[in-house]
Each structure stands twice: as structure tokens, then as C-alpha cells.
Design a protein around this nucleic acid. Structure first.
Lengths: 196, 196
DNA sequence: TAAATTGATTGACCTAAATCAATTAGCTTT
DNA sequence: AAAGCTAATTGATTTAGGTCAATCAATTTA
């Protein structure tokens, strides 16, 4: 069943009954995005949050100078969306692009609000999601301020296992805030260290 | 009345009735922290979130090497606490230290849960708080990855107006992820630019 | 007032990573 | 296999910011 990975994800976080889980699945809609296509583009109102069943996507902003700034990759079992736009009803500024053909589950804002009423355990589940996203961002800040490229790359590999080879390194470099050349050299040094 | 600044803060975010607001105030407790004292230290369980009425505090972690990493300053009208520890019931890893004699309002976890039951509008208020904290952190990541010290300092001044002179620059430097010398030079260049 | 602390600034030097330019390695497509 | 892309790597050079040490300024303490 397509919902299974998400059910497992919920179960890892909270103690939900079978009825709760069943109710949840009735609110989910399956979405497919082909490689290179966009799940989300700026200046749209965001009605859904997404859970990745299969595939790989990246979320990024363009800055004043038109430079791409990747804020998140999402692979299997990651939630993805634009919190700000989704919860606060403001137009999104985010691009979400599929780097591979991807299959997602989507939940609609109103359905989610109803779910909170009908099965309050999900209030807790989604709060835990936001909180851990917050913590993980904080970690990324501390890392970007104090750590070397080598260290940040290692943390990246830890945070996104299984992503190796699926995302071109120049995109990983963008996420890490370094140039493609910089990342290449960092990876080389790590290879040398490992050998000795 | 001491609660007034917080009431105003709530009113700016959500449409709460007088009864809601009154109920809220009954759950708040006043807390004073003297300069140099700690509101929070690692390995404690966090039962409160705090709103700054008056004063100035900083929140920081120590990394593996024992280096201080300031993640937040809080002055009048800022919320402050450890989301992770507070909501997830894990021991805190954060230090919160008063940089000036400070007066805060505290809300207890259980009281907050009751408040959500009794006046659900606060559910929305606190969700907006977390979301905007999340957005603001995201901005800080993009800034720390792509911007120069000069740019980051200007953004800092924008984010924390009225903080000038109240926090020593070497602490601001720490927050920005540069050395005190680095910040000093950046400020000098900005002064020169402004003159011409 | 002198002495001591604490924070800010400056100078000399160094290093990690950026930039620019070229080369190489993997691929598709023909 | 040749041609054409795209991504990754390498080399040469530059630069922002770090490090270390000294000085200066402003408070606090004696």
C-alpha cells in the first residue's frame, strides 16, 4: 500500500490507533512529479504539504542577484513544503523541483485542520515535525558558521544518507554554501584521509 | 500593568477576545533574572517559555571544543526558551544568560496546554510564533552561507534594533560567526562607506 | 588619582575557500 | 567510434576573514 511508509513514519513519532491512521490515509492524495518539473513555484498560494514516497526533490529560493539557494533536499520519508506559505496563507517564494521522477502524498490544509479535530494525536505528530525541523535548522546554522567544508559535507552525508549519486555535487555544494570546486577539493582531501 | 506588552504582542498576531486575554494573564508568572545570572542551564528539564518585558538575554550552546555559540539574543517583546526541550520533554542543552537585569513573564507547560483547550486562539498564536521563528532561522542560514560580514551585520542591526550599546560587540560577533576583530573591521568599512 | 579590568581597534601575517581558466571524465545521441 | 554535453576535477591566483600581538579607550576598583 502506498501509504505504508508514511504510516510507519507516524508510528515512529506518536502512538496512534489504527482508526486514527486509517482516518489519516483517507485525507491523503497521491501526486506524481516528473523529473525537472516543479511541485511549487513562487507567488502561488500553498494548499498542501507533501510526504515523499519515492524520488528526490530540492527546494530553493532565488536571491536578489538571481542566485539559487537550496534550502532542502527531500528523498524517501521526508516531509516537504513551505511552512510559511502553508500555515500563514501568504504567497510562496519557494521553488520545489523534482530531481527525479517522484511520487508524493499530499495533505490539504482544510483536511489537516479537520484531522486535528478528529484525531488530536496528529496535532502532536505535526508539532514534532515542525520542532525537529526547527532544531535541525539551528544545527545547520551552527554548522555553517563554525565548521569547515569538510565537516559540513560529512554532516550532509549523515543527514541525507542514500542521496549519494542521485543529486549532482554542484547542487550539494550550493546547499552547503560552497562552490562546486570547493566541494570537489574537500571530497578529495577526505578520500586521502580515509586511505591513510 | 506588567502584562501589557505581551497583550499587545498577542493582539498584533491574532484576534483574541478580552476574556481570552484575561485568561492568558492568569497563567503568567513574573520572573526576574539579575545580570550575569542564568535563566536556564544544560541538563535541566524545561517547564517554561519566557517573554521578555524588560532587559536583555542571550541563548547559547557550547560545542565539543567548549566554544560558545550564541543562537539568539532576546530583548523587550521577544519570546525565549528552548523549543526542543520544552515541547519534546528532553533535557536542555542550552544556556540562557541575562546580559542585563531582566524581567520576564513565564508560562508553564501544563498551563499552556490548558490554555489551548480553553482558548484555542492561542494555539494559533503560538503556532505563528514557531513558524516565524522557523522562517527567521531560514533567513539566517541563507545569510550565513552567502553574505559577507558587512551584510550580516546590517541584517543583525535590522533584526535587533535598540540593541546597540547593550550587548558588547564581541558577543554580536559570536552571533554572526566572526571574530571580534573581523566585526570591528567590517564596522569600520561601513562607517567609511557612510561618510562618502 | 592611580591602577586594574574589560572591550574595541589596529597592524602584520596566514589560511581556507573563491575565482578564473583549462582539462578530464562520463554520458548520450548520432 | 565520433561528436557533443554536462559534471567533476585540477592548477594558478586572489581575497575575505582568521590569528596573534600590541595598543587604545572606557570603566571600575582601590
Amino acid at each position: 500500500m502506498i501509504h505504508q511508509p508514511l504510516i510507519e513514519h507516524v508510528k515512529k513519532q506518536v502512538n496512534a490507533s489504527s482508526e486514527d491512521l486509517l482516518l489519516f490515509t483517507t485525507k491523503l492524495r497521491e501526486v506524481a512529479v516528473a523529473k525537472g518539473k516543479f511541485l511549487l513555484q513562487p507567488d502561488t498560494f500553498v494548499k498542501h504539504e507533501y510526504f515523499v514516497i519515492d524520488g528526490c526533490l530540492s527546494a530553493y529560493y532565488l536571491d536578489q542577484k538571481g542566485n539559487k539557494n537550496i534550502v532542502q533536499f527531500a528523498i524517501e520519508n521526508w516531509w516537504l513544503g513551505d511552512f510559511d506559505a502553508f500555515y500563514n496563507g501568504v504567497p510562496s517564494k519557494l521553488y520545489i523541483e523534482a530531481l527525479e521522477d517522484s511520487t508524493l502524498l499530499a495533505i490539504n490544509y482544510d483536511d489537516l485542520q479537520n484531522l486535528f479535530q478528529e484525531a488530536p494525536i496528529f496535532e502532536r505528530y505535526f508539532r514534532l515535525l515542525v520542532t525537529s525541523a526547527f532544531i535541525s535548522q539551528r544545527k545547520r546554522i551552527l554548522s555553517s558558521l563554525g565548521k569547515s567544508v569538510k565537516e559540513r559535507y560529512l554532516e550532509f552525508c549523515d543527514k541525507y544518507p542514500n542521496i549519494n549519486g542521485r543529486v549532482p555535487n554542484y547542487q550539494v555544494a550550493n546547499y552547503l554554501g560552497v562552490t562546486a570546486e570547493g566541494l570537489s577539493r574537500a571530497r578529495k582531501k577526505l578520500r586521502e584521509l580515509k586511505k591513510s
